[in-house]
Design a binder for these strands. Structure first.
Lengths: 356, 356
DNA sequence: CTGAAAGCGCTTACAG
DNA sequence: CTGAAAGCGCTTACAG
């Protein structure tokens, strides 16, 4: 029966050249020892005919699909675009495709998503686990991107170190009473960031942590966080562990007539899309997603390639020693010295440092 | 040579049951006429053995991979999570996997991304084109998600209709002078939204469009938009055609000491993640991405399934009659009657309607 | 350096 | 209702 194949296959090239398919294969892959002239002829003919290799056939034969899975806790997460873009880029540079799977925040769906990818024969997967989840052996090489303090983590941003940088920045500006804002007490990433912030503050800075999940458990979703009241009690900086919370804080404070950064400073994490866009632009910490993705994909590919060889049919976490990728502080207008000029909100933003 | 296959194949089931592989195949697929008892036995044995079909083999044999490609103009786009999640969901419900490809804003890369997906043998693709791009015949069924007014569009939100709803909402509140805010003059989506807004205003509303790209071309990226000055000249509402611009407007106005919604109203489009989170929460228009994705995937699958049959080796845009999916107005606190109470900014948001 | 042959796991006419 | 056989397009020992 005729199959949906549009272009020519290896046999067509072989026939056109009067050589064997094996030679075409070897010439194209550069594996077998084929004479340079023949290699050239084969390449030329392949190009002329518009040959496109059948990845399905190759997969069937070699047992490798050349596809990596990307499992995300919740695609709707605003950090997702950065992650997906970086992984897709790293993978396609390495000649791999990326199949996505969304666990939609649910642990059961995470398991199901992993199973779906496995059925599709991915050679390995990158998993950004749902918080608290420990990824068991899934039956193929796995790179986990979470936080360096998470057991089984493969590669991650140095969230703690990022916190330290931000903590020092605020300390250097002269803040002495800082409100930390987190959303979720069980997030390793957030806890690391908070730990780093406190370490960066050093002695002499008083701080308190506000968990939004707890506020909302009492007052309902989207309720005010009471930040104006906090400012009234002497907090001069609000350090959120995510840009979304920082945005929430910034607008709540602005709406209460509290000038940022003249009266209080606000900081975030992750440099999400709106951070440079809001007024005042948000001081934040950026992850080097490109590097993280490169390391994750490289680790995966290393294991995948070994898999053919020697002893271990590696099919678990590729963590060995965790890679810890530095984060970068981005100072924008939302931070300044505390009460440097306790003016009424004006429409002239202070100059501030701007490092892009 | 032993291949990377972990589990049993059809032959294993066939052997265990003393039947042929063909029968196992027919029983499992439900295609051939196999006796009910045998079907049951085959299913049981498959489950017992933990049989997982080889999609690579099936693909090689049938010419279908069961994978759809998703091409995005720029994964970093904040709308992307919604799109990707919806497409992934629709596809996986239909038994398809989703391979992503990012054109990173570049037209050449868009072409390359499409080629990569094609090489991987996707059965079809969903393309969200870069603005202005017209997708040529790519060699497989394609569903284009852009805007109903775009030639070749397959399915899209009714951006114009959404604009109309928002226009009417502002008109009903009593606004008479509205500033429209767009980023890009060549975006079909944005032009449709603006057209709808104007239509929704009807007569008696004065409006003007501010294109951010033009402002920035002169004043540089991230510069103030001069909205406070606009408010001073009598504009009481600022209708952005994206939530990101709305956020920019909201914070710029707040920072200038202009109360939203007491003094001016601000609206966005798309109901992105931060819209319900900022203070005041943003009135916006939501796309029904789930429906759009379902329609796009369904259209693709319809063509893919026909492909085996009769005449046309369909390999182009699956557009025939464009589906136009209604958008939904979400009224939150950022809109109110103009100058209803020209108070100083207070820290008590007005109650406002809230429709979630 | 080159080729003949086998086989990856499945599906599909076709014959029985 | 069931099975034998062919073949999708490739790669890989192996022989020459």
């Amino acid at each position: 029966m005729a199959i949906n194949r549009t272009g020519p296959n290896m046999n067509a090239i072989a026939a056109a050249l009067g050589v064997s398919a094996a030679t075409v294969s070897n010439a194209l892959s550069g594996k077998g020892r084929v004479s340079p002239e023949l290699v050239e002829k084969v390449r030329a003919k392949a190009a002329e005919l518009g040959y496109v290799p059948s990845l399905a056939a190759r997969a069937l034969r070699t047992g490798r699909t050349g596809v990596l899975g990307l499992v995300l806790p919740d695609i709707a997460n605003p950090l997702f675009p950065q992650i997906a873009q970086a992984i897709e880029n790293a993978a396609s540079n390495a000649g791999y495709g990326v199949l996505i799977a969304d666990s939609r925040g649910d642990i059961a769906m995470q398991t199901e998503a992993i199973a779906r990818l496995l059925e599709r024969g991915v050679d390995g997967m990158v998993i950004v686990p749902r918080r608290g989840t420990r990824i068991a052996d899934v039956g193929c090489p796995v790179a986990v991107i979470d936080t360096p303090s998470t057991p089984g983590n493969t590669v991650a941003a140095d969230h703690w170190g990022g916190g330290v940088q931000m903590g020092r920045h605020l300390a250097a500006l002269g803040h002495r009473k800082v409100l930390l804002i987190g959303t979720n007490t069980s997030s390793n990433v957030q806890n690391d960031r908070i730990g780093g912030l406190k370490a960066g503050f050093g002695a002499g800075i008083e701080c308190e942590t506000l968990w939004i999940e707890k506020v909302e458990a009492v007052a309902g979703e989207g309720c005010p966080l009471g930040l104006a009241e906090k400012a009234a009690t002497g907090f001069t900086a609000f350090a959120a562990v995510s840009d979304l919370s920082a945005l929430r804080a910034l607008t709540e404070l602005q709406r209460a007539g509290i000038g940022v950064p003249e009266m209080v400073s606000v900081t975030g994490f992750d440099d999400l899309i709106w951070s440079p866009v809001v007024t005042p632009a948000l001081t934040t910490i950026r992850m080097d997603m490109a590097t993280i993705a490169d390391l994750a994909v490289a680790a995966l590919i290393r294991v995948i390639s070994q898999d053919g060889e020697a002893e271990p049919a590696a099919s678990g976490n590729v963590a060995s020693e965790t890679d810890r990728v530095p984060m970068q502080l981005i100072v924008r207008q939302s931070t300044g010295a505390p009460n440097s000029h306790a003016l009424q909100p004006s429409n002239k933003p202070t100059a501030g440092e701007l490092k892009s």
